[in-house]
Design a protein around this nucleic acid. Structure first.
Length: 576
DNA sequence: GCCGTTTTCGGCCCGACTGTTTTCAGTCG
């Protein structure tokens, strides 16, 4: 089985957790956690880097020892150290660590004193009040453990929620808070502001006259079902539906510093604090300090400037090289909505869309686009009403008529052509030749092996009418895992053939992900952000695609639907 | 375990809240 980067990430993070329970050196543990993250956010396959005998110690946080361990995992699929740790303690203990309020120390105590190593036994012990008798434990902790277990049991498999869904919960809460007496500013921070594809909890920052008032108002919100913590400056509550909200009240002069702190990521913050320390400064959520004197804090920009960094866009704050880029003036100028001129993956009533070609075109015109591309399904996707070649040709004639009617926007004739199991395209070449462009995609046989799937895709790309590879991994957030494919090989094949990769902006897909976008940029593969709209409002999904593109460091030059129609046409015309 | 114009040792980000304790450890972000 091919080892993926996230396999290595998981192994290292399990090692870190187990070393933590053992009470090992905190900094050694941190090294494993850092390494897990480094590998997890890498835009290249580590397995390939090992095969090519690249120097892994060039990676941040990877030294000689961890490089050796990575090689071992890549070559054998396992890590001796982890196996050894599993001999020393049951790995079910890691499940207990997931319970809120239980960290390594308490888990260790529970395990040593009561020989409990799984959530079921723990639940039983708590019900029998054996936990509260342990040293350092009490009734409250015991009660919290039971609630935590219950929470995990009910929300099992739920976890993080999609960004678009979080938006519908967080925005109304912010409006509610902003309407409170004496409130100056309410701003969303956290992973939501960094526009991560999923959000684990909401982080909201408030400046106001009186913190206690805001906290009272917060816990009084109609959707609050549980208050986890409530202080003068910081409170946490759970909303109906399970989303946890952390609210922080900060003084206005600390607004920028707090926004940085609360936006994260944690890793970004650690990195900038480290730079501050090297300069004899200290950054916390109240400002940036020399000794006890605050030297900045009102705006984010001020704080960054004091450590010689330019403003860093929230989407970049993952400690994936943005700090080094900032220090050397190489930060990307991220693509934005103003750059987008069109959308080339639009469905209509002709297949499984809900509106007519004309309606979709009119809406696109309202948005301000220069062009759109109609791309309905082909016959193989029968459940979606895929078009047979004759029907598609009729549709092309219809688009010809609509072009005369709807002025001020170019309507391109396209098709979402199904990639068949053997790598053929679902339309004969003579029909493909009549199209302005194709988006090609997979809707069947998700279960092929990585090698088979990759070959299938590359074989399809050999067809000279293959322009855009749509929703490349086929994942649906929280519903369907991506099919197995070697993204690096696929991208290299796309690059050779002048094929564009789609970043599908549908919030359930967001496919490519951020790391893939970065990979495309580094390999020189062009990306197109399409909404895959099936109805009018879906056209507004473009912003979610943009968020993801920005997280992947993409600039307008990397994204083809920022081009004028003439330049776009050139990019989707392949050499014969 | 990593890292280095204070390099091969001695550092490694910072603070709030909770619960148990009576001055602080543990957890979290």
């Amino acid at each position: 089985m091919a080892i993926r980067n996230d396999d290595i990430e998981r192994i290292f993070s399990e090692v870190a957790d187990m070393l933590d329970i053992k009470g090992e050196n905190q900094f050694r543990i941190r090294s494993y956690r850092n390494a897990a993250r480094t590998v997890g956010s890498l835009s290249r396959n580590v397995v390939d880097m090992v095969k090519e005998q690249q120097d892994l110690t060039k990676l941040p946080g990877i030294g000689k020892d961890l490089a050796g361990k990575i090689r071992q995992i890549c070559q054998t699929g396992r890590l001796d150290l982890l196996e050894q740790l599993k001999q020393e303690m049951p790995d079910e203990l890691l499940a207990i660590m997931d319970i809120p309020g239980l960290g390594p120390k308490r888990v260790k105590t529970i395990y040593n004193e009561l020989d409990i190593n799984n959530p079921e036994d723990l639940k039983k012990a708590a019900q029998e009040h054996r936990i509260s008798k342990l040293p350092g434990f009490g009734n409250k902790i015991e009660k919290n453990i039971l609630e935590g277990i219950a929470q995990i049991e009910t929300s099992a498999g739920q976890g993080r929620i999609a960004l678009a869904f979080a938006e519908r919960i967080i925005e109304p809460l912010c409006e509610y808070l902003a309407a409170g007496q004496g409130v100056f500013e309410v701003v969303q921070a956290g992973s939501y502001r960094r526009r991560m594809e999923t959000v684990g909890d909401a982080d909201i920052l408030v400046t106001c006259r009186d913190g206690a008032d805001v906290m009272d108002r917060f816990v009084g919100y109609e959707d609050v079902v549980d208050v986890i913590a409530k202080g003068h400056t910081k409170s946490s509550a759970v909303l109906r539906g399970g989303l946890q909200v952390d609210l922080r009240v900060v003084p206005q002069e600390s607004y920028g510093a707090a926004l940085i702190y609360f936006t994260g990521s944690k890793e970004h913050n650690v990195a900038i604090r480290k730079i501050a320390v090297e300069k004899g400064l200290k950054i916390n959520e109240y400002g940036i300090f020399r000794g006890k004197r605050s030297i900045a804090g009102r705006t984010e920009k001020d704080v960054y400037r004091k450590i010689d960094l330019p403003y860093i866009e929230p989407e970049l704050r993952e400690n994936r090289g943005e700090i080094e880029a900032g220090l050397t003036g190489r930060l990307p100028k991220l693509v934005s909505m103003d750059d987008i001129r069109g959308d080339l993956h639009i469905h209509t009533k002709w297949s499984d869309g809900r509106y007519s070609i004309e309606q979709m075109a009119e809406r696109a015109k309202q948005i301000g686009y220069d062009y759109i591309g109609i791309a309905d399904h082909t016959q193989a996707v029968a459940v979606a009403g895929g078009l047979k070649p004759e029907r598609l040709l009729e549709q092309l004639d219809e688009i010809g008529r609509i072009r005369k009617k709807v002025k001020g926007i170019t309507i391109l004739k396209g098709s979402e052509v199904d990639i068949l199991g053997d790598g053929r395209l679902d339309l004969p070449d003579e029909v493909l030749a009549r199209l302005d462009f194709t988006v090609c995609s997979i809707h069947s046989q998700f279960g092929l092996s990585q090698n088979e799937q990759t070959q299938r895709i590359i074989r399809a790309m050999d067809n000279r009418y293959f322009n855009i590879f749509a929703h490349p991994t086929g994942r649906r957030l929280g519903q369907r895992e991506p099919y197995a494919l070697d993204m690096e090989r696929v991208m290299k094949a796309a690059k050779q053939r002048g094929i564009i990769l789609e970043l599908n902006a549908n919030p359930d897909r967001l496919d490519l992900n951020d790391i893939h976008c970065r990979m495309a940029k580094e390999l020189g593969v062009k990306v197109i952000i399409n909404t895959d709209a099936h109805q009018l409002d879906d056209l507004d999904y473009m912003r979610f695609g943009l968020y993801q593109a920005r997280r992947g460091w993409l600039e307008a030059v990397d994204v083809v639907n920022t081009r004028k129609i003439g330049d776009l046409r050139k990019l989707i015309t392949r050499k014969k």
